[in-house]
Amino acid sequence: MTLWIIQRLLQAILVALAMALIVFVGLHLIGSPIETLLPPEATHDDRLRLIADLGLDRPLYEQFFLFLKGLLQGNLGVSYVYKEPAVELILSRLPATLELAFAAVLLSLIVGVPLGLAAGWKPDSLFARIIMIGSIFGFSLPIFWIAILLIMIFSVQLGWLPSSGRGATEIIFGIPWSFVTLDGLRHMLLPAVSLSLFNISMVTRLTEAGVREAMSSEYVRFARAKGLSPRRILSVHVLKNVMIPVVTVVGLDIGQTIAFSVVTETIFAWPGVGKIIIDSIAALDRPVIVAYLMLVVIMFVIINLVVDVTYRLLDPRIRLQGE
């Protein structure tokens, strides 16, 4: 297992390097930031000085190595717009986004798996049909519409939950978090629910399909022949098999959820990276875009690593190879 994890880590570093190259090349393709940065009355000398300051006069490969060096030191330049180091800028906003995305994914597992189990256990029941039809709505309704609807009902009509901002936060490890305070949780609930509705539907359907397949399998029949209770069969024999595809999809989906959170953050005025990245793209604020992209790459690589490890814990057949 240790050897395997080291191998996987090396692979992950290679992926990150490849992505760094792609990001770098991609940025050079979208053009020079000089025009956006210079004030209209700038002289030719100002222009040359700015080019030298940004290192844009050096050869491309040198720029790339400088970029890599900066990446390793956690220094990807200063935002042209905010005049703050780009990495710090992103990092200061990232926890809010991560918090929201993980809350949504957690919600989708907590709600989706039991619903899927129930629907798969008795697929002909009215309850199962309601769940399955409901999940189609969860799939097809756009997030922004659900978000607005939730605000209309719970904030405007009923006045139960706040509709914007993070609420009270508490600093843990130097980072402000909302989920540790009651007020923060109240603020998080609506955006998390609207962000998770798609995921809940997906997890529910995935679990339901898995349960139905498992229920007709020979090992469930054998488990029944042993006299096991339905509860034990469902919660041990079926669940463990069903979780394998669910973990894969949910793992991949964490990235999706972070991407989707751009919309949700905008609607609920949630101060995450979604808002900042949209602004930065509009202003061609290169360091911020690069920092964001690289952080997303690193995040994806880490998520995939975690999924792979979880996979092995769940499925002994994968665990065996290479050990």
Binding site: Y219, G227, L228
Partner: peptide, 25 residues
């Protein structure tokens, strides 16, 4: 019936490759 199944009457199935749950020891 469950208290009899596996206790007083046991059953063995045809395909040993699929009767045991693959993810449980």
């Amino acid at each position: 019936l469950r208290s009899i199944r596996g206790n007083r009457i046991a059953m063995i199935f045809q395909d040993p490759m699929s009767t045991l749950n693959p993810v449980l020891r």
